[in-house]
């Protein structure tokens, strides 16, 4: 038998229509190249993998 109090913790609030705009603005679009670039920046400027531009 499942423990409902534990199970309910797995369920998260879902984005509502009014919050879409804020959600999109706050979304920081990052992919693996951005992460690698970030790591490279942390390790030294000579290893910089510059982020891509669209």
């Amino acid at each position: 038998m499942i423990n409902f109090n534990e199970e309910i913790k797995k369920y998260e609030q879902i984005l509502e229509l009014d919050d879409i705009e804020d959600a999109i603005h706050s979304t920081d679009l990052k992919d693996i190249m951005d992460m690698l670039n970030y790591i490279a920046l942390q390790s030294g400027p000579e290893n910089n993998i510059r982020s891509r531009s669209q």
Binding site: L15, L17, D19
Partner: peptide, 12 residues
């Protein structure tokens, strides 16, 4: 049924 998430992805 996650319509708002769908909308968000399409807008992006």
């Amino acid at each position: 049924g996650l319509v708002t998430d769908a909308l968000k992805e399409w807008i992006i």
